[in-house]
Amino acid sequence: MVTNTVDGMSENIDLIKLAIVDDHQIVIQGLKNLLVPYPQIQIEGSFTNGMDVIHFLQTTTVDVVLLDVMLPGINGMELCKEIKMLFPQVRVLALSNHAERSFIMQMLQNGASGYLLKNVSAEKLVKSIYELHNGEITFSKEVKEVIAKPSLNELRGTPLLTKREKQILGLIAEGKTTTIMADELCLSPLTIETHRRNLLQKFAVRNVAELIKEAIQQRIL
């Protein structure tokens, strides 16, 4: 039990065991230096590779994983999902440069209990680690603002697709060309192109790459 004072809080808290995952050693070292004044936070290990932390958690007790979103190999979003599936008692705190709503929401859907941008102060970082350890959800100010503002697609709602449009959307995602789709579905290429245009309009996107991205985010694909 350690007495802590940070950001107006003063209380006795248990030792918090932390693991750091970031693909930049300089970031890891910076985080370690920031946390030196807080002996109640004990860094158990640091990793630049996602799978290394999975192996580590199998043999070492950790309360909180401080996790970057962009990692080589398995990305932070998938790694978060893996950690929560294998070690549900571990709390994941995302720490990222990415403020895109899609990143934030995917991390939360995959089990993260908080999301901070890397420009947060040391006090906010420490306070967030405490909040996670106490079972709370925590965000930095900018992340709260992003979450509070719905995306255009959320305001529009999920597009209503016909059975044929869903079928063609699936074939587009598989990389099929208009000619191949026309042959497989016994339709004319002109009909396929019409469905393509309708899909782009319904999803309010400019090209096939954006179409597939939106369909995945909205869980249609």
Rank of each mutant, 00 (worst) to 15 (best):
G8W: 00
N12T: 01
N12R: 05
I16R: 01
I16K: 02
I20D: 00
V21N: 08
D22L: 03
D23N: 11
L35H: 00
P37H: 06
Q42L: 02
Q42M: 03
S46M: 10
M51Q: 14
D52A: 15
V53P: 10
H55A: 15
T60Y: 08
D63W: 04
V69L: 12
M70D: 04
P72S: 08
N75F: 04
I83R: 09
P88G: 13
R91V: 04
A94N: 07
H98P: 00
E100H: 04
F103C: 11
M107W: 00
N110D: 06
G111V: 06
L116I: 00
L117G: 03
S121Y: 00
A122M: 00
A122H: 00
I129Q: 06
H133S: 15
H133L: 05
H133I: 00
G135L: 06
I137P: 02
S140R: 10
K144P: 06
A148G: 10
K149F: 14
P150Q: 10
E154K: 14
L155Q: 13
R156L: 13
P159F: 04
L169W: 12
G170P: 14
L171W: 08
G175H: 03
M181S: 11
D183Y: 05
P189C: 11
P189T: 10
E193G: 01
R196C: 10
R197M: 13
V205H: 07
R206L: 14
V208W: 07
A209D: 12
L211A: 11
R219P: 04
